Amino acid sequence: MTQLTVVISNCNSVDRAEISVLKGTLNIKYGPNGLGKSTLAKAVVSQIRGDGTLGDLMPFKSRGKADAPPPSVRGIDGRASALVFDEDYVQQFVFQKDEVLKNSFDIFIKTPDYVAAMDAIDVLLAGVKQTLTNNTEIEQTISDFKELRDAFGKSKPGNIPKNSKIHKAFGTGNKTENIPEALKPFETFIKSQEPSKWISWQIKGNEYLKLGDNCPYCATPLVGEGQKDAALAVEKEFDATAVGHLNTLKAVIERLGKYFSEKCCENLQKVTKTKIDLTAAEVSFLMSLKAEIDGMITQLEGLRAILLFLSARRGPNP
């Protein structure tokens, strides 16, 4: 084997160093930190590559001085390549964050048998994958199921919390479907597409009724106590937030209707249009429905996660 004597001068903190390199073998240089081992390696590689990076090793004390000797490496003329097994190499190829060896999946796992098995799984799941991938209807359905589930709040078995959206919307009866007699003149507004906005708007004007007998919105006289009482009754009978929850949940339930059995839809209709407080049987029905919704969400998200996992583990197509 050929032994080379390499002389390195004016590189970083190294004024002059002479090292022996045996061609075609692994040469190990060791010593205390700060001795200049990395500088020597960089200098040798830069000289062989001839890419102009050798000048980057100009010592700090020589920078800006026109007569300062430049970095130089002698003794390796005619050499075409060199590999340096330094810390950067180790970080790149050996100590990966999540695996011991770079591309270990392709080396140890992605065998022909593995690829064939994955292809067979793809065939079995092709229909499911096509249904769940980029399907806006499925995504909307999952979102609706989650919204309906979350409306129950932190419920305990057999109980719907009074601060939950479900209880606020249906717990004390649906007055937008069963309008009190005194509020019949407002039926058009109460049964509008977004009644909560009208109710909130109407209630804000009630404080001005104390200032006179004219309507605070149109300034026409409110004849008799009956009309003023009717205006005040809206605030007494309705809560804008609760009506907003009711309206939103009704829309969600309507969108999910095709996924419920006929019997379930009948029970939901009774719950959403009830005139009085929910009965124990209705609460029980709603809690069992929530349990089924929880299970459905878990299954849909689990299936979607499996498909994503399989796609990720297959890696790029050859």
Rank of each mutant, 00 (worst) to 15 (best):
G34D: 03
L303F: 13
D239F: 03
T141R: 13
A182M: 09
E181G: 01
L278I: 04
F95M: 06
S200L: 07
K37V: 06
L268Q: 02
I293A: 10
T220S: 08
L303Q: 14
N174C: 10
L249H: 06
Q202Y: 10
A242I: 02
K165C: 03
E301I: 10
G158N: 04
A151W: 11
N163C: 03
E187C: 00
F260M: 14
E187R: 12
C215M: 02
F95V: 06
T53H: 06
D277G: 14
A66H: 03
D56V: 07
T272W: 11
Q193K: 07
D277F: 04
A231M: 15
Q96F: 04
P161V: 01
F145S: 12
D122G: 15
A17H: 01
D67H: 12
V21A: 08
E254T: 15
G295C: 07
T136V: 13
N206S: 01
C11K: 02
E254D: 13
Q130D: 07
L278Y: 05
T53M: 04
Q47P: 00
F285R: 11
D229M: 08
L268F: 11
I107E: 08
I138F: 12
K270G: 02
M118C: 08
D294I: 09
L303E: 14
A291S: 15
R63G: 00
A169C: 07
E139Y: 09
L246K: 12
A231T: 09
K210A: 02
Q130H: 07
Q140V: 07
Q269N: 14
A280K: 08
V44C: 11
D106F: 07
A182L: 06
W198M: 04
R149W: 00
I48T: 10
T188I: 04
S311G: 11
A240F: 08
L308F: 05
A230H: 01
K23H: 00
A242R: 06
A126H: 12
S200I: 01
T172Y: 12
V73L: 03
L54V: 13
Q299K: 15
M287W: 01
E18K: 02
T220L: 08
R16V: 12
I28L: 15
T298M: 14
D15M: 00
